[in-house]
Simulated scan of single mutants.
Amino acid sequence: MPFATSADGVRLHYEVHGHGEPLLLLAGQANNLHWWDAVREEFDDGFTTVVLDWRGTGRSDRPDTDSYSTRGFAADAVAVLDQAGIGRAHVYGTSMGGRVAQWLAADHPERVGRLVLGCTSPGAPHGVERSNEVRQSLVQRDQTAAMRALKELMYTPRWLAEHPGHHFRTLGDPTMEPYARRRHLLASGRHDAWDALPLITAETLVVHGTDDEFNPTANAPLLAGRIPGARLRLVEGARHAYFEEFAQEATPLVLKFLQG
């Protein structure tokens, strides 16, 4: 079971799969490497995929310190690439993972080949935030109702109805301590890479679902317009977890981009 060690001594669990050019897959807020389970094998066919447990999740260490930030997570990802012996990798980040990927491409351009930013945002100061109605639906006292609201933000009603026994991997790591969840929430909420986006030199694809209210779709053209030469693709009818529910459309378009 491989581990890398961050600059501040945190042990970071990661896995390597597949064959081909390296591809780093970055998961969403408060989620571990299993975020990618539903689609990772499709990428394994053509790439050596690297997935990691963020600090605070999975098998990685869970420090209760002020060491959680999207820019810090990017440095953690570099530590994983170093330990895996990978100098340069394509990067595909979704949700908070897309925020981390922005810093990775801006701060470590020599480590990033092609860049895919999925269902993500440049950050609150310049991005479009979710509505108060959505926020309230996620923090209601009835935990069953709150989880139902989260599922409906991630997936369409039709898909949920057709998958009643689905084992969800995108709704948060259930083993996380409350303090780690709070620190992930703060890290994602404080993200602001607006000034760094024009510095990104990697060829970039921005992907987003047209019906995403969890991370509003309006953030996609903001990112694409801020990153030099970035391309934009919208997945019609998709919500936040477009990469899973609409994998038959989303995965081929990402693969085509990554393969040049």
Rank of each mutant, 00 (worst) to 15 (best):
P164E: 12
V16N: 02
I227E: 01
P164H: 09
T251M: 15
G209A: 10
G28W: 03
A193W: 05
R99I: 04
E162L: 10
C119F: 09
G229V: 09
G18N: 00
H108I: 02
A202C: 00
P174R: 10
S67G: 15
R88F: 03
L199D: 02
A218C: 05
S188D: 13
F3I: 07
R190W: 11
T204P: 04
F257P: 04
G97E: 13
N215H: 03
V206N: 06
L115G: 05
Y155Q: 10
E42S: 13
V39A: 14
Q248M: 04
A146M: 15
L33F: 00
H19P: 00
R239A: 04
E129N: 07
V16M: 08
L23G: 06
S60R: 12
R114Y: 09
L222T: 03
L232H: 11
A196V: 08
E203D: 15
R88T: 14
A38Q: 15
G46A: 13
F47R: 10
T201M: 10
G237K: 08
A105G: 10
D173Q: 05
N215V: 15
R88C: 03
Q102S: 04
S121P: 00
V39C: 00
G209H: 08
H240C: 05
T49A: 09
L171G: 08
L185W: 04
L52R: 08
E42P: 07
H208K: 05
L234M: 11
W54K: 11
E177Y: 11
V139W: 03
G118R: 06
F3R: 15
Q29N: 13
Y68E: 12
R88V: 10
R183I: 01
A187I: 07
V116I: 05
H108D: 07
T94S: 11
H191Q: 09
D142I: 11
D45L: 13
T49R: 04
T175C: 04
T156P: 01
